[in-house]
């Protein structure tokens, strides 16, 4: 739900002229961002927003089991988390699922984006609405739908790795590719259709036009969409919770079962790793989406 909005939020320069009535230290009537109380409010909210996660990350290095008072720096909980077989296996499962889900949902999403960008067809509004459904349907409803679906059709369980992850991967693709479609389509909105026509006029085939003209323009959107699909898959808990079985535990599901018992520094360490991975992926996605790279 994040990416479509980040894509829509355009950053414009307001160019606010200074007003005539100057009060306290050049603060114009519309310079709300310069008011001290406004700044303090926003600053306080940002602190509240980040403090829990930052403390979690900092205290993953804390040499104390009780996790409240700082007792010294250590990496031991990272080593413990690494050596925790269940946690490590869950992490590998998550990465594997995210990998396959990203590839397939990027391809499907990019195709749908091209379809919606290029063609006019009857029932298009309804089609777009249906495509947006996985984005808007409450996660828990989609989770139970997947549970019911795989149970009713008798999806084989107990297959060898990595095929035992197929049900979760399928579910992840189902909610990821509409997001990819939104991101890629936002990118394609800026494409000059005449370029495509020119290419075809000059005798290029459909495929050549796509490969040499459309795809180079589309690429930043595709990369951003892929990174989004990756983080969505890596982060998903609710839908995975309903599709996973005892031998197909993903990282968030494993952390959930651990958290239910107690808050341990080991979980903090593992969470920190996941947070760092997602933050890096997000930064990369933003870089590919940002207007400065738009003509790339």
């Amino acid at each position: 739900m994040a990416a479509d909005m980040t894509a829509n939020v355009s950053i414009e320069t307001p160019g606010k002229p200074q007003r005539r009535k100057r009060r306290r230290r050049d603060i114009g009537p519309l310079d709300y961002g310069k008011r001290l109380w406004m700044r303090m409010f926003v600053g306080a909210i940002f602190v509240l927003l980040y403090a829990p996660i930052l403390t979690l990350m900092i205290f993953s290095f804390n040499d104390s089991k009780r996790n409240v008072v700082w007792k010294g720096f250590t990496f031991k909980y990272y080593i413990k988390a690494w050596n925790n077989d269940g946690l490590f296996e869950a992490f590998m499962n998550s990465i594997t699922i995210a990998f396959f889900s990203t590839i397939i949902s990027t391809i499907l999403g990019a195709m749908i984006a091209l379809l919606l960008w290029r063609f006019r067809f009857p029932g298009k509004a309804a089609y777009e609405g249906a495509m947006a459904l996985p984005i808007v349907v409450p996660e828990i409803c989609m989770g139970v739908a997947m549970l019911v679906f795989f149970a009713r059709i008798g999806w084989p369980s107990g297959m060898p790795w990595p095929f035992n992850l197929s049900a979760i991967t399928i579910a992840h693709i189902a909610f990821s590719f509409p997001f990819v479609a939104v991101v890629v389509r936002a990118r394609m909105a800026g494409f000059n259709r005449e370029l495509e026509e020119a290419s075809k006029d000059l005798g290029a085939s459909e495929w050549q036009t796509f490969w040499n003209v459309v795809l180079p323009y589309m690429r930043p959107g595709v990369v951003a969409g892929a990174l989004l699909a990756f983080t969505l898959s890596l982060d998903d808990f609710v839908i995975t919770f309903f599709t996973s079985g005892p031998d197909t535990v993903t990282f968030p599901v494993k952390v959930y079962s651990m958290v239910r018992f107690s808050v341990t520094p080991e979980v903090n360490a593992a969470s920190t790793v996941l947070v760092v991975i997602t933050v890096i992926a997000t930064f990369l996605a933003m870089r590919f989406q940002s207007p400065s790279r738009a003509d790339g």
């Binding site: 927003l49 980040y50 205290f59 009780r66 409240v68 982060d235 808990f237 952390v255 958290v259 969470s271």
Partner: peptide
């Protein structure tokens, strides 16, 4: 804007779990 958006890229489970450490009886 990034500062606002960033937290919701972080795993929902981890953010919720981080709150437990803040709110619990022997929390921050």
């Amino acid at each position: 804007l990034l500062a606002v958006i960033l937290p919701f890229w972080i795993n929902l489970l981890i953010r919720t779990y981080a709150l437990i450490a803040v709110f619990r009886t022997r929390g921050y």
